[in-house]
């Protein structure tokens, strides 16, 4: 497997009135034809990392390579081979969709017929053929997002950076896009870097996911590995007929030195391996004593969401 993106002790500090360490010494590498997800809360440093990799920002320390080119001195070579879907759609609102796409494609492709072919294909793929001659300013938010995706893909780049690709899309469009992203990896051998808050997205799409918070990578691995690594344990799901106060499961968990939380009528506890026998009766008893009627107690598979929330919780308690 060839490495397409390599990041080594990357640091990015924004120097303003106060200086912010947005990315704090991260390292990872992404192989060709892989989907890598960056998962983290607002302000974690996801966009900043992507901007350094796409040569929009210079690293404060450390280095990064895209297709073997360093972001420090081979910027044009990197820019020629990447496609970036940014937080802003980045299209000219007063120009038509077609003019926008022609403008951007013209920097990578010389042949008008190639551009036209790719444009028609992508407009069809993203259901925008009928809006081709409309000004971008007249498109809805979700349609602008799809238009921006076409702009990202039109020059057929080997590496894609997608910063929250499904933000603003309706559920059907989001599902279709995820399918398309998988297709880009499987059939076109693209290397794809996705920033997201969407855990389901990270879980279903990525070969490797990294959880980032406050500029540091907390955990990294395949979704399956992450689950195993974090919870060689099981999760206990308890359903009540009544809303469970947020504090109650936390209190119980604290006594047992585990983590737990509630969400409406459900509570969830993460149990270390082999202690089911001791802990489950205690948890159930405490809840009942706290006046919570219990409808169901079940063991559950972990999702990436559990891992994420669990990590953030530990972080918050620390």
């Amino acid at each position: 497997m060839k490495t397409v993106i390599e990041v080594e002790n990357l640091v990015k500090v924004y120097n303003g009135k106060t200086s912010t360490v947005a990315v704090d010494g991260i390292s990872f590498s992404i192989g060709r034809g892989r989907i890598f997800s960056f998962l983290g809360p607002n302000g974690a440093g996801k966009t900043t990392t992507v901007r350094v990799l796409s040569c929009l920002l210079k690293p404060t320390a450390g280095d990064a390579w895209v297709l073997g080119n360093s972001v420090k001195d081979n910027q044009v070579a990197i820019r020629e081979n990447i496609g970036m879907l940014s937080e802003n759609h980045g299209l000219y609102e007063k120009m038509t969709l077609e003019d926008n796409l022609n403008f951007f494609a013209g920097f990578y492709l010389d042949d008008k017929r190639t551009i036209e072919g790719r444009m028609a294909e992508l407009l069809e793929e993203f259901n925008l053929s009928n809006r081709r001659h409309d000004k971008v300013g007249t498109l809805s938010r979700g349609l602008k997002q799809r238009a921006s995706l076409i702009k990202t893909l039109i020059h057929d780049p080997a590496v894609l950076f997608l910063d929250e690709p499904t933000a603003g899309l309706d559920p059907k469009a989001a599902v279709e896009l995820r399918k398309y992203i998988t297709h880009l990896r499987d059939k076109m051998d693209k290397t794809i870097f996705i920033c997201t808050h969407n855990l389901v997205e990270a879980q279903t799409l990525s070969d490797v996911a990294a959880i980032i918070d406050k500029g540091k990578i907390m955990r990294m691995g395949s979704p399956v590995e992450l689950e195993r690594d974090l919870f060689q344990s099981s999760s206990l799901r308890i359903e009540s007929t009544r809303d469970i106060p947020v504090e109650m499961p936390r209190q119980i968990a604290r006594e047992l030195n585990i983590t737990g939380r509630s969400e409406g009528k459900h509570a969830r506890f993460f149990l270390p391996p082999g202690e089911l026998d001791n802990l489950v009766p205690f948890i159930v008893k405490s809840l009942v004593e706290g006046g919570i009627p219990i409808l169901e107690v079940a063991r559950e598979e972990h999702t990436l969401e559990d891992i994420y929330l669990e990590l953030m919780e530990r972080e918050g308690n620390a």
Partner: peptide, 14 residues
């Protein structure tokens, strides 16, 4: 102002 600066900066120009 029109939030297109980033697209322009991403172009393969020096």
């Amino acid at each position: 102002e029109r939030r297109t600066a980033e697209s322009l900066l991403l172009l393969p120009l020096t």
